[in-house]
Design a protein around this nucleic acid. Sequence first.
DNA 1: GGCACGATCATACCTAGGTTTGGGATCGCT
DNA 2: AGCGATCCCAAACCTAGGTATGATCGTGCC
Lengths: 223, 223
Amino acid sequence: MTGRPASPQTLAGAEEPVVFVIDDDASMREALSNLFRSVGLRVEVFGSAHEFLQSTLPNVAGCLILDIRLPRLSGLDFQAELAKADIRIPIIFMTGHGDIPMTVRAMKAGAVDFLTKPFRDQDMLDAVTTAIERDRVSRDEARMLSGLHARFATLTPREREVMALVTSGLMNKQIAAEIGIAEITVKIHRGHIMRKMTAKSLPDLVRMAEMLGIGPASGGPQT
Amino acid sequence: MTGRPASPQTLAGAEEPVVFVIDDDASMREALSNLFRSVGLRVEVFGSAHEFLQSTLPNVAGCLILDIRLPRLSGLDFQAELAKADIRIPIIFMTGHGDIPMTVRAMKAGAVDFLTKPFRDQDMLDAVTTAIERDRVSRDEARMLSGLHARFATLTPREREVMALVTSGLMNKQIAAEIGIAEITVKIHRGHIMRKMTAKSLPDLVRMAEMLGIGPASGGPQT
DNA sequence: GGCACGATCATACCTAGGTTTGGGATCGCT
DNA sequence: AGCGATCCCAAACCTAGGTATGATCGTGCC
């Protein structure tokens, strides 16, 4: 943190992380809101899961504080909903009357923490810190992966095929033999691949292929 | 599964997974032992964590069933002990009187499951299946990584340095300039590296470097 | 001192990778 | 029919990678 407080919006949603709180208890919302603001965190509160879904989620790192016992939908089911809808945001559960199976289910589904009420403020803040950091990392990864996929999508089928063979370590002549074309053609495809993927070197391309999950079968080098 | 039952020991400990059970209640040990054997799993039971640590662990995939309330050491503390001692085995906790914080702590520390007594046999079997598979995978990874580290250890300091630069995508001449030696010398180092690491190709070497966590700073290709 | 090892480098030689130029063929879409 | 994308290939040319041979030098060890 560079000591900069909450500048309104320097560049249309891109910096300050946000804590979303969903709880049907207004006093709890108020208490959490105060807690998070007291440490300089941006907060948005909702009385129900529905309200949360209606809102426009800013494109910044964040996390979700959820009571396991929500009005119409259980926190656990809501967690599943979000996963199904591909909304990946770290979740911190709170509960007054939770049980162990619920806890296990939530944690297995990736919850960051599961706090029992009453909890200590510091425990909540620690959980939020962890959650936001986790989201920041996963957002970074997602952003990079999406750029990668976008570039990969511009490759022609043949180029994709050649890329897989190149990154698997075959020589141009072997690739040519493998798919039944001339070596010079492989070289040309290869050149196109490097440019389209904006790979600065072969190792660079190999790493891209790894991230894209390219490479027939075997996970990696020898045992 | 190839339908092959429990052949005694074809090759000194290398196939059948084992379920380790630690519980001070003899009837529980008996029940679990029967349960696992009924599905063809090898089982070893212990009355305490101490007994378990005294035994010689076979080098096969396995998992540990642990009561959270152990005689002298809590299951949670024992889990921490194992982690500290670098004994990585998936753990499934059982409890009669557990609470949520315990559950959260266990799950955060990597427990596969946390079952409340009485539990359904099928739940335990499912957890064991997951745990063993997880261990199998992590053992495969560990085995590969150890081979990799062993080969990497045979590299001279200079070779390691060159390997990092090669796999980061620099050309020989750039590497030469970078460390202030002649290009031909880089080529020679490079040849040694490929041979010592038994890399069949540059992409191969790059993947090895990735697994070894080599490469100054930056995690990977562009954003 | 002598030896092994790591590191350095030159010369020579060969293979692999890559671009440019220029061309041909097929296919689908307008 | 014309256009653009994809795929194919050749000749020429240049750079990069890799090996072999042979040699020098410094360090640590017996």
